[in-house]
Design a binder for these strands. Structure first.
Lengths: 230, 230
DNA sequence: GAATTGAATATTGTATGCAAAAAACACTAA
DNA sequence: TTAGTGTTTTTTGCATACAATATTCAATTC
């Protein structure tokens, strides 16, 4: 018995995806109110599926619902971003551990291909390419070691860490020269099937980025003008 | 400026809570189809807020939506339950670590009160009381060391582990005689402010339960008749 | 001019209506 | 019987309608 039947995709899901990418791409900015009528007209749907989509996004914390007022694009606090990093630290640590457990030789080969010809210069171009490779690498790691529940969580909460500071160094927290050795060590630990080591390295990797982020945030606070409305 | 204003609770949220407890309490059983018209009438609301509530539950994996067919109460696979345990292992490990970091003397006192007068006999009554204490303990641990994101995730996925096998030994996977020393060690590690140790113990605690569960499941498979419909 | 009030307007939360899809049923032919 | 087919009934997905609440803004008072 086949199961390929699910071709009908409900409108609310399409709206959900569209809205989500609008938020991640900053077409809707943090703090913006979401005018249901307007968006619904823009998308050519009624408010019913839009409402559903908004509720979904609320659950993912991308928007905030204020009863009888409406939905607003959420503005993440520094604390939340750091907390999201803390979660990634252990969740991707888990993924790394599992990946090392179950990796196949073919997958190990593919894994070893990541960052092979990384360019560590400071040009915007090379930073950008490294950032892309970084995302692909973490994606592959999750595919390797993840499972449904874990993937769901990571998908939801990576967005918080990604959508913050997207404008600085392509979203990278640390310079490739610093992270490349860590990536290489992680790759080797997973590819050679060392779960404990893989988890440890993955966690260290995120931990260091988190520490760096904390420092950056502190500096920002000292230096700059802080907009932080209610 | 105060902020106590949020008194309006939308209908969909009430429906959501009600449905959720119906599922957890087995008033709606795994596999049951959710007849929207019927439930809506039962709750005295229209299908609109019910729909929203169902979508929320879908995101939490308590129900499954099949487009153009409807919603069904989800039946968890063994794999999923084990995966949920694996998640709890690291997530509550994190909570334990953080708790040990930030615990106050007053909280440490309260923590040490858990399981103080535990009764390790085999009577149904005492097992039941231990299971309740267990839940309260883990809840307190999450309150201590958790944060918003973590709480959300744990709330969702604990349900998977709790709603499975609720009928055997009050949902406990291992006997109190086995888990009590672990609980005591964990309490002491947190109360005396030892983050690394606390995390390690918490993880071991869950890991052992997970191993036990795997064994149990394997035995069930060997022995019993397996209902596992599509 | 600043603060306060209150009507006019806009927006939300929910119920209802309706077309399209799925399920249930009844009837016919092997 | 059983398999197949057309028809009725049910149910879903979505649009729309409407009352209740929020917001806006002009008029009024201090």
């Amino acid at each position: 018995m086949k199961k390929l039947g699910t071709r009908h995709e409900n409108l609310d899901f399409k709206v959900y995806r569209e809205l989500k990418s609008m938020i991640v791409d900053r077409k809707l900015k943090p703090g913006d109110k979401i005018l249901q009528e307007k968006i619904a007209r823009e998308f050519g749907v009624s408010r019913t599926p839009l409402m559903c989509a908004l509720k979904k996004l609320e659950q993912e914390k991308l928007v905030q619902a204020v009863p009888r007022r409406g939905f607003y694009v959420r503005r993440f606090t520094k604390e939340e971003v750091l907390e999201a990093f803390e979660l990634r630290e252990i969740l991707e640590g888990l993924a790394a551990r599992r990946a090392a457990h179950i990796i196949s030789p073919a997958q190990a080969d593919r894994l070893r291909g990541f960052f092979r010809d990384a360019d560590l210069s400071d040009s915007a171009q090379s930073i950008k390419r490294y950032a892309e490779e970084d995302r692909r690498f973490h994606q592959f790691l999750i595919e390797l070691g993840g499972f449904d529940l874990l993937n769901d969580i990571l998908e939801n909460y990576n967005i918080i860490t990604v959508s913050y500071r997207i404008d600085v160094m392509e979203g990278l927290v640390r310079h490739p020269r610093e992270t490349l050795p860590e990536h290489e060590a992680l790759i080797e630990a997973i590819a050679s099937g060392k779960p404990e080591q893989a988890e440890k390295i993955a966690r260290q990797h995120f931990n260091r980025s988190r520490q760096q982020l904390m420092k950056d945030m502190l500096q920002e606070k000292m230096a700059g003008t802080q907009r932080q409305p209610a």
